[in-house]
């Protein structure tokens, strides 16, 4: 089968479940790699694996990892300023481990969103997590893709969408592209423009 489109790559990949998903990116022809990131992220979503499995993302040098640790509130860890439940989604969280230290969990599986909603329910508990490490200039980030609570099953790290719908009061159908429907974001763009420099700068640049 010749590979010419993202869909072909996805189907070929899904038809070969024993092969590592990390091979997905390396199979892409050069011209496919050259297109914008959005279709690729949509492909990732379309090819989403079952709970517990790690998906490849178009991140150079990303390393798959699975480990166990305690869910901690970073502000609490650093300066002793703690809340009852890790801030209930309002604070940045980490997973404290014996082998890796305290890992900042910066990202989840939903586009443009972080990981607090994926973890705060397990504040102070030991969970299993897996996903991708990415490192640049000595800064190491972890993208959580799956969480396994104590004595539970693996869960995809996509709770953000559900939480956004609950917080925003928007229709669930908007959750996939939540960033386009978020009233906070819309207000900032309306005020400052897409460049952040005001409407006049936008008019001149995008004309």
């Amino acid at each position: 089968m010749s590979i010419t489109t993202f869909g072909d790559i996805c189907m070929k990949h899904l038809e070969s479940p024993t092969r590592s998903r990390s091979t997905l990116l390396s199979e892409m022809p050069g011209r496919v790699k050259a297109v914008t990131i959005l279709p690729l992220l949509l492909l990732v979503a379309a090819c989403a694996s079952p709970p517990g499995e790690i998906d490849a993302w178009p991140i150079t040098g990303a390393q798959e990892s699975e480990f166990s640790g305690t869910v901690v509130d970073l502000l609490c860890e650093l300066n002793g300023n703690c809340t009852d439940n890790c801030g209930e989604g309002n604070r940045q969280l980490g997973v404290k481990t014996d082998s890796l230290g305290t890992v900042l969990v910066a990202k989840n599986l939903t586009d443009f969103s972080g990981a607090a909603d994926e973890l705060w329910n397990y504040c102070g508990q030991v969970v299993d997590v897996n996903g991708l490490f990415t490192t640049h200039q000595g800064v190491r980030f972890f993208q959580v893709q799956n969480v396994r609570p104590p004595e539970g099953k693996w869960l995809k790290a996509t709770r953000y969408s559900e939480a956004w719908v609950a917080r925003s009061g928007k229709d669930a159908g908007m959750a996939r592209n939540w960033h386009e429907h978020d009233e906070r974001v819309k207000a900032i763009i309306k005020r400052d423009g897409y460049l952040g420099l005001g409407q006049q700068a936008d008019d001149e640049y995008f004309e």
């Binding site: 990131i37 993302w57 178009p58 991140i59 989604g89 910066a106 990202k107 939903t110 586009d111 443009f112 969103s113 972080g114 990981a115 607090a116 909603d117 640049h136 200039q137 953000y160 939540w178 960033h179 978020d182 906070r184 974001v185 900032i188 763009i189 400052d192 897409y194 460049l195 952040g196 420099l197």
Partner: peptide, 25 residues
């Protein structure tokens, strides 16, 4: 993920930076 670090700062990346901050990154 979207290119070199220089590309994802400043005005080029302003809206995405707002998206990501709103999303809790």
């Amino acid at each position: 993920i979207m290119g070199s670090s220089a590309v994802v700062t400043g005005t080029a990346h302003h809206v995405c930076a707002v998206w990501c901050a709103a999303g809790g990154i």
